[in-house]
């Protein structure tokens, strides 16, 4: 039926109206024709899907299975199925509890500080535009260095003997230096400072972009109406930024909850677990090969927390889009 005879329209004028294909054949060929898009899509998708599937999707699912097991990460340490044992112990393990506590404290302080500073600096840059490009670039600088290097730079800054912070302290206030990384709670606060230093530039640019989306006319109108600076900030700037703020908050929690690099290189969790974080805990347990089961279970816990927060961020982003539309 593929070769259709061309009707001779002049000879048999109305013959051309009759359909060539039966309904059944038409449907079958239509389906086969539509299927070509699947073949094409498969061609374009498979490179990514293979990498993603093998190295992310399958491991994620495997991880759930692993959380009911102990060991199996290296040869000589066979995997043993332990049921819900790991999960019950996540609740009671004191080291993990400390790690979660530290991480939460860190997340709270770091985000509060970095957001406050970022919004403050962003509004300054938004107002004083002269040379703002230089300031933006300079503030962005810490992001260039890998977290490890950023942390190492601060390793010099906070050194007990020659760190500039202690030099200043000794000169200005007097007395002995501060053991920034050797005492609690200084160590965790130092980690906070390092991470705030690293992230500040990003969030300044982030909020600056948000501020610049506040309509200029709105500001001008409020000014004409005699609204003071603080009032304008509260009544116009904050409402405009609020959807952005919530989204940013969720994203920041997701990122900061994974704190690891600077902890690993600066304090390795110490002193006395004072800077132990969740990811540090997972890494430690996995690759010191002690109680890997607990690490398996906490990995999945982390995964669930992040997935929930991701869903929340999408929801917030969707709401923001809706509002803009």
């Amino acid at each position: 039926m593929t070769a259709v005879d061309a009707p001779a329209p002049e000879a048999v004028p109305d013959d051309w109206r009759a359909p060539t294909l039966s309904d059944a054949e038409y449907r079958w060929r239509a389906r086969r024709y539509r299927f070509r898009t699947v073949r094409r899509a498969a061609g374009f998708l498979s490179p990514y899907l293979i990498v993603w599937g093998v190295f992310l999707a399958i491991p994620a699912v495997w991880g759930i299975f692993l959380s009911f097991n102990q060991g199996g990460l290296i040869k000589g340490d066979p995997r043993v199925f332990v049921g819900f044992d790991n999960w019950t112990r996540t609740v009671s393990d004191s080291e993990l509890r400390t790690a979660v506590k530290n991480t939460s404290i860190y997340v709270l302080i770091a985000i509060a500080v970095v957001f406050t500073l970022a919004i403050f600096l962003a509004s300054l840059l938004n107002h004083y535009k002269k040379g703002s490009n230089f300031y933006k670039v300079a503030l962005y600088f810490p992001l260039l260095a890998p977290p490890i290097l950023g942390a190492l730079m601060w390793f010099f800054m906070v050194n007990f003997d020659f760190g500039i912070l202690n030099l200043i302290k000794r000169t200005v206030i007097g007395g002995d230096g501060i053991r920034f990384l050797g005492d609690n709670p200084h160590a965790l606060l130092t980690i906070v400072a390092v991470e705030v230093w690293r992230g500040l530039g990003f969030w300044v640019l982030f909020y600056l972009a948000g501020l610049q989306s506040v309509p200029e006319e709105l500001q001008a109108a409020a000014k004409v109406d005699g609204a003071g600076k603080w009032r304008r900030f509260r009544r116009i700037t904050v409402p405009t930024l609020r959807p952005l703020l919530l989204f940013a908050l969720v994203i920041a929690v997701i990122f900061n909850f994974q704190l690891f690099d600077s902890v690993q290189v600066l304090t390795d969790g110490g002193p006395r677990l004072g800077t132990a974080t969740v990811v540090w805990f997972i890494h430690k347990r996995l690759f010191k090969f002690q109680d890997t089961g607990l690490a398996y279970a906490s990995s999945i816990g982390l995964l669930v927390v992040v997935l929930v927060l991701t869903a929340l961020s999408f929801w917030l982003l969707g709401k923001r889009r809706q509002r803009e539309a």
Binding site: W52, V54, F55, L56, A57, I58, P59, A60, W62, G63, L66, G72, L73, I254, F257, Q258, F260, V278, V279, I282, H283, L286, T292, A295, Y296, S299, I300, L302, L303, V306, L307, L309, T310, A311, S313, F314
Partner: peptide, 23 residues
């Protein structure tokens, strides 16, 4: 696919390690 956007390296560290090791 999008749901995996934020999956932390740490959360899949062990199974990814095992996957690579197995391969």
């Amino acid at each position: 696919i999008l749901a995996t956007l934020m999956v932390p390296v740490a959360a899949v560290l062990a199974p990814t390690y095992l996957t690579v090791n197995t391969i």
